[in-house]
């Protein structure tokens, strides 16, 4: 398996196979969960009724939702193993650690973006944008998994929880679903596929990225891969 930072033909491997598998499984399961979840949440609307119809009705919709919930949980277990027990995963996680640098970077970007003065900060692999989406998804998915299992095994959970917590659980599960949807579609999808290098950046499938682009957008990461020198 090729390591992150491998350089071939002017391109660099940014995402290892582990990461790409995790990402695709996460992507597929979250889309399926969103589509089946919104069918239930927006059952009053045309969209909800349409989704319910194509999902084969209320009962089958629930079965699809729970199937992908299991897939998601397996993916989370994979991710936990990856970040805790592999060197590569651990390094990547440490790169995602929030720091004071993110705050200063954010204000620098805002200043440059809004006023045109100053310059873009020198980014590493994960900027505040990636950290917002990663930790947003971590928090969101954790809440979704907990509330989801409480709702799935409703008899068991209601034998121990007060009813009002159960009512709140339902609201939280629905609202967190929307938050995750916003993070992934309004934030992540724009940053990667629309506001980035090109429409639909295929790097998440191949793992490779052009060195030239990386040099411009992620100078610190570029330097790490090329050993600080220029033009490899």
């Amino acid at each position: 398996m090729k390591k992150i930072g491998t350089i071939e033909n002017g391109r660099v491997l940014r995402f290892s196979l582990h990461m790409r598998i995790q990402h695709i499984v996460l992507m597929v399961s979250l889309i399926a969960l969103a589509v089946t979840g919104f069918a239930l949440k927006y059952n009053d609307s045309v969209l909800g009724r349409f989704l319910l119809t194509i999902e084969g009705g209320m009962t089958f919709r629930g079965m699809i939702h729970r199937f992908f919930a299991v897939i998601l949980v397996l993916d989370i277990i994979y991710h936990l193993w990856y970040t805790v027990f592999t060197d590569e995963g651990h390094r990547e996680l440490m790169l995602l650690k929030p720091s004071r640098k993110d705050v200063t970077e954010f204000f620098a970007v805002m200043r440059y973006t809004l006023t045109g003065r100053g310059s873009k900060p020198e980014f590493d692999k994960y900027t505040y944008r990636e950290k917002i989406q990663y930790w947003g998804v971590v928090v969101g998915v954790s809440i979704m998994v907990i509330t989801g299992f409480l709702l799935w095994f409703e008899t068991a959970s209601m034998t121990v929880m007060p009813k009002w917590i159960f009512d709140i659980t339902g609201i939280v599960h629905g609202a967190e679903g929307i938050i995750l949807f916003i993070i992934l579609f309004l934030w992540h999808a724009y940053n990667v596929h629309i506001g980035g290098k090109q429409f639909f950046n295929t790097s998440f499938i191949s793992g490779w990225e052009d060195l030239d682009y990386l040099k411009k957008e992620r100078p610190l990461e570029y330097k790490r891969y090329t050993g600080g020198g220029e033009g490899v």
């Binding site: 008899t155 068991a156 034998t159 007060p162 009813k163 009002w164």
Partner: peptide, 12 residues
């Protein structure tokens, strides 16, 4: 809901 207990039936 087989297995429902006192707590299950509490609440509005």
């Amino acid at each position: 809901h087989p297995g429902a207990n006192e707590n299950f039936a509490k609440g509005r």
